[in-house]
Design a binder for these strands. Structure first.
Length: 855
RNA sequence: GCGGCGGUGGCGGAACGGUAGACGCGAGGCCCUCAAAAGGCCUUGUCCAACAGGGCGUGUGGGUUCGAAUCCCACCCGCCGCACCA
């Protein structure tokens, strides 16, 4: 017999072509009831419940070609999709490209190719790779966010939000990236105040921009986190980002000028300890308060200096406090005290009202400021922080305790109780009320960049901002050559495009020249897949009803806040507008870890990039996919090893070779059971005839059923690494027993291995299964472990003395505790350890062990 | 500082409170071969011991338990997120 050689380069294209030709992974909407829309559709197999399942990986930014990270997400997603299909579900598993926006445009600028062209190239490269990886995609629903057929509906959603009052324009201090020459959303600026995309230090500019009113949804975005099956840490990140604080808004009045200044505080119980009042440098009233006074010059200088500083310089808690007096006072509403006003850069304009009451005795920052400027400090809550040194005055104190030095009716009251009482009093007096504040800001969506969805409004000299009528959508992105960012939108140079007429009055008007943030495009794409070719609407409710919400969403942690929060906001807003019937887009989320090399993130500058393409070319897609899942738990970071991937390749080669040899030892049997019902339970008798009584056959059969059980459980908990290890064990057992079992037992075991490994290595498994069984493995139901074969007649009983392993003996599965104890006592090594000692306790765990406690 | 996750052989990693180290990599030995590649077989936590067997072992120190990598307390280290948010 010639040596059979595993050749992925022959096997993989063959199956890929078949799947493409037959459109195997395509699913239609709305299958006719009772008809055979899917070979597995309505069968009563184990696990088949006829439900549909929407498995979705985050869509890629098509720049360059896919890397190892893409290989990982889509390997994870494809394993889940295949498993769901074989459990009998109709699975929607589509693909698209996030081809508009900064990532694609920056790539284009770097390579000097027009974004339209470079995007098209990248998409072609991604398509080609996904095909050669054998990912089971329904290509009939493919989309790209830069196509007019798609962004037409992005524009429609923008207009819907505008109509609902959720899209608006305002002048604001916004984050500006000097390198990308555009404004950024708060979410796109990292902790050091750098641009999330290019790393440049971000500046603050006063500009008029478009916003989405995501803050209206803060409470629901927070509350509904409880209802979704997401990793806890992602929920925590979203909760932190929303940053809900409960407290009160309290009005402090500047009597001289007759102006009320509300402040937000989480500690109204400390109001009596307020000894001064501080405003943010950006507060519009700061300069007005000192105009024409002796303080004006000093205040102006301070404000100018503070505003010029970057967020990075200003943002540190360790930095010494600075500020200057405004020479004015406000009235503390609870006691009528006149307290001095200051301007200081530790107060942020973006949070609360941009002004605070300062209680140095009970707030660290106010305390530091008071010490720096020698301001009075008044303790109004008694208590000691256990961590604080004995010799200081115990201030600032932020713990609980009774009120002191406040007002007779509150003094002595526990502070939490006093808090409620004081808020109630303020409310009655009209000087304040309970209030909730959020850290979340409205989403700034306009960008002064070329490669994005045009914002579909015109600016009319007479009518102001006018939405483009729906039937004129899409507002097409004009082709322009000079798209480099230069501070104002490149679209402004397309004169012919910009000049238009007003849809309302037919007068002269100019088109909006800003484009939308990329994250707008990706905030609804999962809806479009459900009804990808609808030309009359973004989607139909019937189509959504079949698939949404997404059952399993898969993607990287880097989108824990941005994309995932925006998509949730869109879903809720569209549901409120009556366009959707659900509140959350992604019922379950799985976040996969990064693939590193030599412990470091792969990057071109480090020179440690492993090319997914070359691995697939060299060893095949099955090896690459299996290895990336075998390397470790998929939600954790994993380090790529060139030796490790070879090991997985050897495993697949051994498996395939043994399967091919075994298949060559005889024709596939004529099927005892009709195709399609040929799954483990019904097929078993044919493969394991009763009465063979052969120990090795039984052992191999048991191992196969053990593997079925193990892989099924592991797949449900995304433990792909141990699932693959289980199939390796099954193969090892096959190899060990190959010469000493009946052909049909070996064939069954190998077919089972192929069946179980199929979600991870589809090509080689399809090939093996066809050789062994003459059937298409993906049309077979997921195998079912026979409980009778998972149980054993005898097992290895662990014998412990004082909790230490001393011996192992064979015990009958149905042995009584008494019998087990006797077995253990009879074990020779146990006797050596209990000899001459007194047994004070016996612990018998049937099926496991006996522990004898001796003295 | 706050929150989350983690710390197990030479390495990646397995282990419902019940045989620690599955599976793989690497390493060593052997078989096949004229030779090599490929493939196959065996060994591989550590120390004592020829073997049998035993001691020690899951970041550190305590605790609970017949029994702890696993549960509890305190701490150390690493990674991630948040952080002058009133």
């Amino acid at each position: 017999m010639p040596q059979l050689q595993y050749d992925p380069h022959e096997i993989e294209p063959r199956w890929q072509e078949l799947w493409a030709r037959e459109r195997t992974w395509q699913v239609a909407n709305d299958p006719p009831a009772g008809a055979e829309a899917s070979p597995l559709g309505a069968r009563a197999d184990a696990g088949a419940d006829g439900r549909s399942s929407y498995v979705l990986e985050m869509l890629p930014y098509p720049s360059g070609e896919p890397h190892i990270g893409h290989l990982k997400v889509y390997s994870v997603g494809d394993a889940i999709a295949h498993f769901q299909r074989r459990l009998g579900r109709r699975v929607l598993h589509p693909m698209g490209y996030d081809s508009f926006g900064l990532p694609a445009e920056n790539h284009a600028i770097k390579t000097g190719v027009h974004p339209r062209e470079s995007t098209t190239q990248s998409i072609a490269s991604f398509q080609h790779q996904f095909h050669s990886w054998g990912i089971s995609i329904d290509w009939s629903r493919e989309l790209a966010t830069h196509e007019p057929e798609y962004y037409r509906w992005t524009q429609w959603i923008f207009l819907e939000l505008l109509r609902a009052g959720l899209a608006y324009r305002k002048q604001a201090a916004v984050k500006w990236c000097p390198k990308d020459q555009t404004v950024l959303a708060n979410e796109q600026v990292d902790a050091e105040g750098r641009c999330e995309r290019c790393g440049a230090l971000v500046e603050v500019r006063q500009l008029e921009q478009w916003f989405f009113r995501i803050t209206d949804y803060a409470e629901r975005l927070l509350g509904d986190l409880d209802a979704i099956d997401w990793p806890e840490y992602v929920k925590t990140m979203q909760r932190n980002w929303i940053g809900r604080s409960e407290g009160a808004e309290v009005t402090f009045r500047c009597e001289e000028l007759g102006i009320d200044y509300p402040v937000f505080t989480t500690r109204p119980d400390t109001l009596f300890g307020a000894t001064f009042f501080v405003m943010a440098p950006e507060h519009p009233d700061v300069v007005r308060l000192v105009e024409g006074t002796a303080r004006e010059a000093e205040v102006r200088a301070y404000v100018n200096h503070a505003i010029a500083e970057s967020g990075e310089e200003r943002g540190s808690a360790e930095r010494p406090k600075s500020g200057v007096a405004l020479g004015r006072t406000v009235t503390n509403p609870v006691n009528g005290e006149q307290i001095p006003m200051y301007v200081a850069d530790y107060v942020l304009m973006e949070y609360g009202t941009g002004a605070i009451m300062a209680v140095p005795a009970h707030d660290e920052r106010d305390y530091a400021f008071a010490r720096a400027l020698h301001l009075p400090i008044r303790r109004v809550i008694e208590g000691t922080d256990p961590d604080q040194a004995q010799d200081d005055d115990g201030l600032p104190y932020s713990g609980d305790g009774p009120l002191v030095d406040s007002r007779p009716d509150f003094d002595g009251m526990p502070n939490r109780q006093a808090l409620a009482a004081i808020v109630a009093w303020l409310d009655r007096e009209g000087k304040g009320h309970a209030s909730v504040s959020y850290r979340l800001r409205d989403w700034l969506v306009s960008r002064q960049r070329y490669w994005g969805t045009p914002i579909p409004v015109v600016h009319c000299e007479r009518c102001g901002i006018v939405p483009v009528p729906e039937d004129e959508l899409p507002v097409r992105l004009p082709d322009i050559d000079d798209y480099l960012p230069k501070g104002r939108s490149p679209l402004a140079t397309a004169e012919e495009w910009v000049h238009t007429t007003c849809p309302a009055c037919a007068g002269r008007a100019r088109r909006e020249t800003d484009t939308m943030d990329t994250f707008v495009d990706s905030s609804w794409y999962f809806l479009r897949y459900c009804d990808a070719h609808n030309e009359r609407a973004a989607w139909s409710r019937e189509a959504l009803a079949q698939w949404m919400p997404v059952d399993q969403y898969i993607g990287g942690v880097e989108h824990a806040i941005l994309h995932l929060m925006y998509a949730r906001f869109f879903t809720k807003a569209l549901a409120d507008m009556g366009r959707l019937d659900f509140q959350e887009p992604f019922s379950a989320l799985f976040t996969q870890g990064m693939v590193t090399k030599d412990g470091a993130k792969m990057s071109k500058s480090r020179g440690n990039v492993v090319s997914a393409t070359s691995i697939v070319q060299r060893l095949g897609a099955d090896t690459a996919r299996c290895y990336i899942l075998f390397i470790g738990p998929p939600d954790q970071d994993a380090d790529w090893s060139d030796e490790g991937v070879e090991g997985v390749h050897r495993f697949l080669a051994r498996l395939w070779r043994l399967a091919a040899e075994t298949a060559g030892r005889g024709e596939p049997e004529p099927h005892a059971a009709p195709a399609g019902t040929a799954h483990a339970p019904s097929r078993q008798p044919a493969h394991a005839p009763a009465g063979t009584g052969d120990e090795n056959d039984l052992a191999l059969l048991r191992k196969a059923h053990w593997a079925i059980d193990k892989v099924s459980g592991d797949l449900r908990r995304f433990a792909f690494n141990t699932a693959i290890a289980a199939v390796m064990e099954l193969l090892n057992e096959c190899s060990r027993l190959r010469a000493s079992v009946q052909l049909q037992t070996l064939r069954f075991a190998l077919a089972t291995a192929a069946s179980l490994l199929f979600p991870f290595a589809p090509h080689v498994c399809a090939d093996m299964y066809e050789r062994l069984e003459g059937e298409r493995v993906w049309e077979q139901p997921w195998p079912h472990a026979d409980p009778a074969l998972l149980e054993r007649d005898t097992y290895e009983l662990v014998c412990q003395v004082n909790g230490r392993l001393r011996d192992r003996v064979q015990a009958a599965a149905d042995a009584s505790p008494q019998e087990l104890k006797e077995l253990c006592l009879a074990a020779s090594n146990v006797r050596a350890h209990i000899d001459g000692k007194q047994i004070v306790k016996e612990v018998v765990v049937p099926g496991k062990l006996v522990n004898l406690v001796v003295r």
